Amino acid sequence: MTTIPFDNSYVRLPDRFFVRRAPTPVAGPRLIRLNRALAANLGMDPDWLAGPAGVGMLAGNSVPEGAEPIATAYAGHQFGNFVPQLGDGRAVLLGEVVDRDGCRCDIQLKGAGPTPFSRRGDGRAALGPVLREYLVSEAMAALGIPTTRALAAVATGELVVRETRLPGAVLARVAASHIRVGTFQYFAARGDAEAVRTLADHVLARHYPEASFAEHPYGALLDGVVARQADLVAAWLLVGFVHGVMNTDNMSVAGETIDYGPCAFLDTYDPRTSFSSIDAHGRYAYGQQPGIALWNLTRLAEALLPLLAEDEEAAVAAAEAALAGFGPRFEKAYHDGLAHKLGLSADRDGTVALADDLLARMAKNQADFTLTFRRLCDAA
Results as ranks from 00 to 15, higher is better:
A230F: 11
E312H: 15
Q289N: 08
V245I: 15
E210Q: 14
N250V: 14
E256H: 03
G244C: 11
H281I: 05
Q289R: 11
A264K: 08
S212Y: 00
L297N: 03
H216C: 10
W236I: 02
E310W: 09
L221M: 09
L300I: 08
E312Y: 14
P209V: 11
S276Q: 05
N250Y: 13
D223S: 13
L237A: 08
R283G: 01
V226R: 04
A285C: 07
V245T: 06
A264Y: 02
V253E: 02
F241P: 02
Y260G: 01
T273D: 01
S277H: 14
S274V: 10
A264L: 12
G244R: 06
L300C: 09
P217M: 12
H216N: 15
R299C: 14
A303W: 07
G240V: 09
D311V: 07
V226M: 07
D270Q: 05
A230L: 07
A280D: 06
A301I: 10
L305P: 05
P271I: 11
R272T: 14
Y260M: 15
D267I: 00
S252M: 07
L294Y: 05
A227G: 04
C263L: 00
Y286M: 08
E210W: 00
A314C: 11
A230I: 02
T248E: 03
L232A: 05
N247R: 07
W295F: 15
S277E: 03
R299Q: 15
T298M: 05
T268P: 12
G287I: 09
Y269M: 06
A234L: 08
N296A: 14
L294W: 09
G219M: 04
A254E: 03
P306N: 07
Y218K: 03
D267S: 15
T273E: 04
G287C: 13
N247I: 07
A280Q: 13
M246E: 00
A211Q: 02
H243I: 06
H216M: 10
D223H: 14
A220C: 13
A280W: 05
L294P: 02
L221S: 03
A211L: 08
Q289T: 04
L294Q: 08
T257M: 13
F213N: 00
T248A: 05
I258R: 01
H281R: 10
A220L: 11
A317K: 15
S252Q: 03
A235W: 02
Y269L: 09
Y260N: 04
Q229L: 13
Y260H: 06
A254Y: 04
E313C: 00
P217E: 01
L297K: 09
I278S: 09
P271E: 02
A280L: 15
A235K: 14
G224Y: 03
W295C: 07
A309L: 08
A280Y: 12
A264N: 07
E312M: 10
E310R: 15
V242N: 00
Q288I: 00
G282K: 04
F213W: 00
P306L: 12
W236S: 03
D223F: 10
H243W: 05
L266V: 09
L304P: 06
E312W: 13
P209R: 12
F265R: 02
G287H: 12
L221Q: 02
R299E: 05
M246T: 00
L304N: 01
D249R: 13
S252N: 08
L221I: 07
T273K: 14
G282I: 06
V239M: 10
L237C: 08
P217F: 13
T273L: 12
R228F: 12
